[in-house]
Structure formats: structure tokens, C-alpha cells
């Protein structure tokens, strides 16, 4: 199979990169179920740490799930009509708006969080509620939802399809529900999975926006890395992997499907 030195070198680089990415992940998983990491896996396999994490951090896991769900709902409600509006109203205004809402992809979360804190930090009721974190998550994930749907909508002849529906007697809202939404489904699905995956893993904004009573999963992770023994930190990471990896795989599948449809 390996024909030349060049191929061998390529394979070596690929495998080294894989090892670099994969070995610490495996170590983390192992450490999470090892009785005593310092002694190694021979000290026995246990779920003790996982249960301990559950006792300590179950709240943070539920908060993250809740936030991801709320974030999905909000990005869907704002993003779907917006993607439709952008697709049907091309022009400088739409381009600027799309570019503007994509700013959170480029600007570090830390800076966005500071900006939100500067403006809304003094509104105590809002500042200390979970909706403040939600705003941050929506800010970060909304462009993914909008672009994912927009890509699918842009690939079909939406205008003519709508004209056809209109000639058959459908009003604008009807056309939106009967024609736009069903045909945008692959984009909506890909967008939704992306939003949930990113929301569950979001740390940069959340760390700045959270309060001691509102810790999300990644905030809890940072907390455990700083203050807990390695086994607990690893077990917590393991729980995170179990949640995020299937989501990520589903997201990649849905995104490539949406892209295939878009082309």
C-alpha cells in the first residue's frame, strides 16, 4: 500500500496528529473510571467518580441541557424567518445584516461578554438570571442557524416556488409554512444540531456571564479542573464527551447532508 517515501511521511504525520488528539482523550476517559489514577488502571475500574460527579454537578448538566434547548428555540424563532427574509430580500441591507450577526463568530467570546456586562451588568434581575447566559449563547449560535438555513434556501429557486404557490391562492404566511419551512428542513436540522452542540460546549462567554448559582457544564468543568482531584475532573469530562460526541457526529452528518442538497 505504501508506495513511496513521500506517502510514508504523510502517513506518519497523519498518525502522529491522530495520536496527539486521541491519546489524551483516551487517558481522560480512563482516568474517569480508574480507582486511583496515580497507581494506574491496575488499581481497579470503578464508576465511583462518575457518581460523585453526578452528586456534585448534576445541576450544571441540567442547566446546560436546559440552556441548549432554550437556545435552540430562540435561534429557531429568530433564525428561520430571518434566513427566509435574507434569502428573499437580497441587497446591501441583507448583506450588512448577515455580516453583522456573524460578528460573534469572529470576535472572541470574552470581548462579547464584556460588552454585554458593560451594558446590562447593572440590571440586577437580568444579570443574575439564566436568561443572561441565554442571550450570550443565542448571540454565538444564531449565525450558525441562519447560515445553515440560508445555504439551503439559496440553493433552490425559492422565488419561483413561492410565485407558484401564490398563483394557486396561497398568502405570504401560508407560503412560508407550506413551501419554505418543509423545503428548508435539512438546513434547519443541521442548524439545530449545531446550535445544541455549540451551546452545550460554550465556555468563553458563559464564564464571564455566569453567577455562582448558575454554572453550566463547561463552567463546572473548569471548576473541577481547578479544585477537584484528577479522577473527578476526568469523570466529569467523560460525561461531557458522552453528551457531545454523538451530537457532533449527528451535526456533521446533517451538515454534509444539507450541503449535498444545497449543491
Amino acid at each position: 500500500m505504501i508506495k513511496s517515501k513521500a506517502k510514508l511521511l504523510q502517513l506518519t504525520v497523519t498518525l502522529t496528529a491522530c495520536a496527539f488528539l486521541f491519546i489524551p482523550t483516551v487517558m481522560s476517559v480512563m482516568a474517569g473510571v480508574t480507582a486511583n489514577y496515580f497507581k494506574g488502571i491496575s488499581s481497579g475500574v470503578t464508576l465511583k467518580w462518575v457518581f460523585q460527579v453526578w452528586e456534585l454537578y448534576a445541576d450544571s448538566i441540567f442547566l446546560s441541557l436546559w440552556l441548549a434547548l432554550a437556545c435552540l428555540v430562540v435561534t429557531f424563532i429568530i433564525g428561520l424567518p430571518a434566513a427566509y427574509g435574507l434569502a428573499r430580500h437580497p441587497g446591501w441591507f441583507s448583506r450588512v445584516l448577515e455580516e453583522f450577526i456573524s460578528l460573534p463568530l469572529a470576535v472572541p467570546g470574552l470581548a462579547l461578554a464584556l460588552a454585554l456586562l458593560q451594558l446590562y451588568g447593572t440590571m440586577k434581575g437580568f444579570r443574575t438570571s439564566w436568561t443572561f447566559i441565554l442571550v450570550g449563547h443565542v448571540l454565538y449560535t444564531l449565525p450558525f442557524m441562519v447560515r445553515s438555513i440560508l445555504a439551503v434556501l439559496a440553493a433552490m429557486d425559492l422565488k419561483t416556488l413561492e410565485e407558484a404557490a401564490a398563483s394557486l391562492g396561497a398568502s405570504p404566511p401560508r407560503r412560508f409554512l407550506n413551501i419554505v419551512v418543509p423545503n428548508a428542513m435539512p438546513g434547519i436540522l443541521a442548524g439545530a444540531l449545531t446550535v445544541v452542540t455549540l451551546s452545550i460546549g460554550e465556555f468563553n462567554l458563559t464564564w464571564m456571564l455566569h453567577t455562582p448559582y448558575l454554572k453550566t457544564l463547561p463552567v463546572g468543568l473548569a471548576d473541577s479542573y481547578a479544585s477537584m482531584r484528577l479522577e473527578i475532573a476526568s469523570a466529569y469530562t467523560l460525561i461531557f464527551f458522552i453528551m457531545i460526541v454523538p451530537l457532533l457526529m449527528a451535526m456533521q452528518w446533517a451538515s454534509s447532508r444539507a450541503q449535498r442538497i444545497a449543491n
Binding site: 416556488l161 404557490a165 401564490a166 398563483s167 394557486l168 391562492g169 396561497a170 413551501i179 418543509p182
Partner: peptide, 20 residues
């Protein structure tokens, strides 16, 4: 009158059949 109120039947060049 808006198109949806005119009761016209239209066959489009690309047919514009609803794929869903």
C-alpha cells in the same frame, strides 16, 4: 389584486413543482 386573489393558473418555465 394580489396574485393569490386573482384565481389564475400558471405553468412556470421551470415548472416550480413543490419538492416537499
Amino acid at each position: 389584486q394580489q396574485v393569490e386573489d386573482r384565481k389564475v393558473g400558471m405553468v412556470f418555465q421551470s415548472y416550480a413543482l413543490f419538492p416537499n
